[in-house]
Design a protein around this nucleic acid. Structure first.
Lengths: 358, 358
DNA sequence: TTGAAAGCGCTAACAG
DNA sequence: CTGTTAGCGCTTTCAA
């Protein structure tokens, strides 16, 4: 912390005033604490005049109910846990925004855990959230390893859980996922119709969402009788601070040696697509005239770059809202649900017809 | 939810086994619950043999302490609250990442509130967090109105709070802030040295960070004896989904009528800078040859666009970590601290020498 | 080194 | 409509 420019210290002397409890309010208002509780929660009838007296006492004492006591008493915390793999992809922020929006309406709070793309940290987060007695958990893009092994088997029995964008479906959990298979198909079909035959696939590691897309890509290419083996690129960590840069470096090298072999690149997310786009700029490869690029997600980022990214919209905010909705339903009824959303191809500036070969 | 493609329902039948309490363990181990508590917390001496007996009972019953009960009892929850104005500016994600990183090491959890750029919602969030008995609160870019009025006066007495990037300093709180005045000065000086005299200021509403910069901008221009009144632009909400687009639209109109009047634009954050950049692209204004642009923050976004943004680095991750550190220190010792960090100008592609006039 | 017991602040029967 | 009361599960004096 060498950058400190100035630093002041002082100790707080004023003792914080003891927080008023429900008993203080009851005394001041001359009623029982049960009545205060009723006024606060509005769950039982209270005579209007009594209500006003109590409310006055509450205001005067600045009474704020002690949630810890309430939640302990009822043995259910009005809080839901959210686990994200990282915070450097706007995709997650936008999903969280949707969750927060929904959850907040019901006066729930949101406990956020960052799994940092680490299966162990993700599992730890689940344990933490459970011991904190959250009402339920939403896991965004769960780690592939954890879904394959039995890591979630116990958790799912103890707490309502909904998974966002997981292909593997364990029993006793709800799911909301984009139909990334169809989305991939749509993007590839579009590129195909534009005349592209040699399409690169850029994916990463440790997320089901790359696997799904890769599978569809392979099927698609096989169906079109296009060989594609050498056209699958893996740039590693796909959601980190370094994803764009890594992709850019990787592609710069790759394209230096393989320029012209492919006329289009399908990327598993917008971050990767921006990396590819930037590599092209560095190498003077015209986009989309020489090379078309598609992203995936339709994060804000895809509209910020130039040309704007052709991409597949996952409607993150809605994704988050629906996840929250399913979670609440699971909490209320115990019912699991699975919802698949259709992805929409958004055609913008990074794609165009396949260039003529001579 | 018309996009539903498939939907499955099933009800979970398995009843979760009643959770073992400390009393169950005590009975099974033939000791008092106080002893079990001591074993669990390891805070008082327990004879080794007793310890083993208790541990055996714990294992056998799969006993997990009830955090809700513990926190209620001790009246302190191992959780800290974070309030952000929004999630659509990477600035916030990166700060949160820093906070989460620090907080997680001490086994604390993070309660996230999204104030949605709304002073009322921000105030509500504070109340919620206090009633949840968080150990402390970090407010990122607090709302100007709330800092001016006495909104935080009570809160600050009840809970340790640290404010990130607030200029107004209430007593009884800690602060970590970037020296945005100096950062602004650095950017403007740099532009000045490059020959720019007519420098536009692009700011927004409801955040101290815009105010600080605007003040310094005015001072700077006055000192250089440059009039600047008509050069201050306010694009409204500066952290939303629409910020880039709004700025772009606004600037497109503005530049259509005022092209050539200014040769440089100072923007209060990277989002705005990208908006200006995109407006230039639409209008065929060469950046930086005809117009130079500086951003502020150095979010990842500033490296994704082309040309890359010249901007002022706020080192968000460090900012978050320091805030967490100060918060823990305040919790432990009651001491307030204020730390100012120096911002570093990062010169990249959107700035250059002032074009020659004829 | 251990046990007994007093709450923490609130909700929810139950009784009136 | 309102009051009384019994806990929720745990920590922590205090006494042994």
């Amino acid at each position: 912390m060498k950058e400190n420019d100035e630093m002041t210290n002082r100790t707080d002397t004023e003792a914080a005033p003891a927080k008023a409890t429900i008993i203080d309010v009851a005394k001041k208002a001359g009623v029982s604490m049960a009545t205060v509780s009723r006024v606060v929660n509005g769950n039982y009838p209270v005579r209007e005049e009594t209500r006003r007296k109590v409310q006055a006492a509450i205001d005067e004492l600045h009474y704020v109910p002690n949630m810890l006591a309430r939640e302990f008493n009822t043995q259910r915390s009005m809080t839901i846990g959210v686990i994200v793999p990282g915070l450097y992809n706007m995709f997650f922020s936008e999903v969280i925004d949707g969750i927060e929006d929904y959850v907040h309406r019901d006066e729930y709070s949101l406990l956020l855990c960052n799994a940092r793309n680490d299966s162990k940290l993700e599992a730890d987060s689940v344990a933490t959230l459970i011991s904190r007695n959250v009402s339920g958990i939403i896991v965004i893009s769960p780690n592939t390893k954890n879904m394959q092994t039995r890591r979630y088997e116990e958790a799912v029995k103890q707490k309502p859980i909904v998974f966002i964008d997981s292909i593997r479906h364990l029993p006793h959990a709800s799911y909301v996922a984009n139909n990334e298979t169809a989305g991939t198909e749509a993007a590839l079909t579009y590129l195909y119709r534009e005349g592209h035959r040699n399409i690169l696939f850029v994916g990463g590691r440790d997320s089901d969402s790359y696997t799904v897309k890769e599978e569809r890509y392979c099927q698609f290419m096989k169906r079109q009788e296009i060989s594609q083996k050498k056209f699958i690129l893996n740039i590693g960590e796909g959601n980190g601070v370094r994803t764009v840069d890594n992709t850019e470096e990787f592609m710069q090298t790759y394209l230096t040696y393989h320029r012209g072999e492919a006329t289009a690149v399908f990327c598993c997310n917008d971050l990767m697509a921006v990396g590819v786009l930037n590599a092209c700029k560095k190498l003077g490869i015209a986009v989309p005239d020489e090379l078309s690029i598609t992203g995936y997600d339709n994060t804000s980022l895809s509209r910020y770059v130039d040309p704007q990214l052709t991409t597949v919209d996952q409607n993150m905010k809605q994704l988050g809202q629906i996840a929250a909705k399913l979670l609440f339903e699971k909490i209320a009824t115990g019912k699991d649900q699975s919802i698949f959303l259709q992805n929409k191809l958004i055609i913008r500036g990074t794609t165009g017809p396949c260039p003529q070969r001579d």
